[in-house]
Amino acid sequence: MGEELRPTEKKALAELKALIAAAPPAAAAIWGVPLAGGDERTDVVLLKFLRARDLDPAQAHAMLSRCVAWRRDFGADGVPEEDLGLGELDGVVAYMHGRDRQGRPVCYNAYGAFKDADLFDRAFGDEPRLERFLRWRVQLMERGLRLLHFKPGGVHSIVQVTDLRDMPNRELRAVSARVLSLFQDNYPELVARKVFINVPWYFSLIYAVFSPFLTERTKSKFVLAREGAVEETLYRFISPEFVPAQYGGLSRPGESLDPPPKPASEFSVRGGEKVNLEIDGIEAGTTMTWELVVAGWDVEYAAEYVPAAAAGYSLAIAKPRRIAAGAPPLRHTFAASEPGRMVLSIDNSSRRRKVAAYRYSVRKPPLNL
Rank of each mutant, 00 (worst) to 15 (best):
F120M: 13
G154P: 00
R143P: 06
D83T: 09
R71A: 14
Q160N: 08
D73E: 15
R51H: 07
K115M: 07
G85R: 08
M63K: 11
D73A: 15
L50V: 00
F114E: 04
L147R: 15
L134M: 15
F74V: 14
V155G: 11
Q59Y: 03
K115Y: 00
P128F: 06
M63T: 05
K151L: 14
G153F: 10
V93Q: 10
V68E: 13
F133T: 07
R101P: 01
F124K: 02
D116F: 01
R51A: 00
G103H: 02
R122A: 11
L147H: 14
R71K: 15
D90M: 05
F124Q: 02
M141R: 12
Y111I: 07
P105R: 10
F114I: 05
R146Q: 15
R53K: 14
D43K: 00
R143V: 07
V93N: 07
L84S: 06
H156G: 06
K48R: 12
C67G: 01
R122H: 13
R51Y: 00
V45A: 04
G98Y: 07
R135S: 08
W136C: 00
G153L: 10
D56V: 08
R146F: 09
V45G: 03
E88Q: 10
V92H: 07
D77Y: 04
E127V: 09
G125M: 00
F120C: 10
L86S: 03
N109D: 04
E131H: 04
D73P: 00
L84H: 06
G75E: 06
D83R: 15
G103W: 03
L119C: 06
R129Q: 11
V106K: 05
D118Q: 12
N109R: 11
A123S: 14
R137V: 01
G144K: 06
V92F: 00
V44T: 15
L145M: 13
H156M: 02
Y108K: 07
L130M: 13
A69K: 13
G154A: 12
P57I: 09
E82T: 11
L86W: 03
D100N: 07
Y108A: 09
P152G: 10
D118V: 11
N109Q: 12
I158V: 11
R143I: 05
V155W: 07
A123H: 04
V138D: 03
W70T: 14
D126R: 03
L147T: 13
G75K: 08
L148E: 04
P80S: 13
V161T: 05
V161L: 02
F49Y: 14
R122M: 09
A123C: 14
G144M: 10
L55R: 11
A117Q: 13
H156V: 00
V161K: 00
R132E: 04
E82P: 04
L147F: 01
L140R: 11
T42F: 02
F124R: 06
R99L: 06
E88T: 00
R51D: 01
R53F: 01
F74H: 15
